[in-house]
Design a protein around this nucleic acid. Structure first.
Lengths: 218, 218
DNA sequence: TTGCCGGTGTTCAAAATTGAACACTGGCGG
DNA sequence: CCGCCAGTGTTCAATTTTGAACACCGGCAA
């Protein structure tokens, strides 16, 4: 079982690193599709390394990024409450390593191991509040502010470290999908931000804290 | 403690009905504010009776309804991951009875009682997928479709029962906040829907399943 | 009865956003 | 070297959305 040698204890981190009943480790290259919208949903995933995006495609073919998941995050949880199919695709943004956990295994372990359940609940709460913020952002703010916010978030603002926040290359197309607008709009505002000295970019992108003024003004 | 007489067992429903360490029952009248945006966040709430809305107000004074919570739902969970202040207000839509659970009590019980944790996790997952849907709706659909969707959801579509779905009175202003648009827009589309026979309303509102065509078309 | 008031129906110009188009760039494989 | 191509900068008309305004309709208290 998912139990360690020192019997009687349970370490979630160890559980999430060990291949065993119902758990497998998968390696993906950048841009790989981990699952596709419409696939049958019978497992939850945990990210051990890398970053990925969750993308939905509308009937008209428009795409929207509804989440960027990072190390330590879970995704594909919808299947735990009876969603039979994936409502969105998961696409690797970098090379990444994920652990796949069967739905049944996941449910069992959530019941049996409070320490694990706690970890998972914390993830859900965090994710919850992030989506709520995204929704509010969408409802209240112009695309200019939304873009500024996304750039700041990508640059890990709020987290310690990174005195000069740099984001790895990301296309305007993807930014547009994340912000919920069109590419020309992103291009327009990126240039505006650059002219104002809020960001710099040639190949890489660096975001200055002065960009905050865009989000905060008015 | 939160333990029943028949020692050794734990019934979440019973727990959520019994006043005891860290738990209190509160009764609210329609339109009462259960907590305000900016209040200190030190408790989670569980709805035993009634319906309420979660509302955020922007710096510019615009309001947005980011959730309608019903019997059996939790709200105010943000405090469990260190949000010190309420990011939104909770306002009763009907008379309602809620149980207030101290943050500390909630965290303890989540650790100690798997059955309760399971209930809570299920709530989080459901809420999660609903907000995601709301976000996607906002990103993809026009205000006309969004209004149609909200009306259908209010009429409890998807749930069994209600052959002729009727919604209790709700102002166009509130609808506008839920949909994320302006009141004139709501007025315009409501009349359009009425003319097309998708809805009826004098005092009460009834929603026909034919309204689905608006959401599905194109 | 009168006057107030919340909720509604409607209009309209201003502003934001879309979507499609076109030219330009730099890298990369052949 | 050349051609291809993804990503970018830019334009612009069409469409959607906003925000403010005004009139109308009950109900209800004075």
């Amino acid at each position: 079982m998912a139990r360690q040698k020192n019997k009687g204890t349970f370490d979630p981190q160890d559980f999430l690193a060990t291949v065993n009943g119902g758990r497998t480790i998968l390696n993906h290259r950048k841009s790989d599709v981990i699952f596709e919208q419409g696939d049958t949903a019978d497992a939850v995933f945990y990210i051990r390394k890398g970053k990925l995006k969750i993308v939905t495609t509308s009937a008209q073919g428009k795409e929207a990024v509804i989440g960027i998941m990072d190390v330590g995050g879970f995704f594909g949880e919808g299947c735990l409450i009876g969603q039979p199919l994936r409502l969105a695709a998961a696409v690797a943004l970098t090379d990444c390593t994920v652990m796949r956990i069967d739905r049944a295994t996941m449910m069992k372990i959530l019941q049996k191991e409070p320490a694990f359940a706690e970890l998972f609940t914390a993830h859900l709460l965090t994710r919850n509040s992030r989506i709520e913020e995204d929704l509010v952002d969408q409802l209240f703010n112009s695309s200019e502010k939304r873009l500024a916010r996304i750039l700041l978030l990508l640059a890990n603002f709020g987290k310690p470290g990174q005195p000069e926040p740099v984001v790895t290359k990301i296309s305007q197309e993807t930014l547009a999908e994340m912000v919920g607008t069109t590419r020309p709009r992103v291009s327009f505002f990126m240039n505006k931000f650059r002219k104002l000295g809020f960001i710099e970019y040639n190949g890489k992108l660096s975001v200055h804290s002065s960009l905050l003024s865009v989000v905060l003004r008015d």
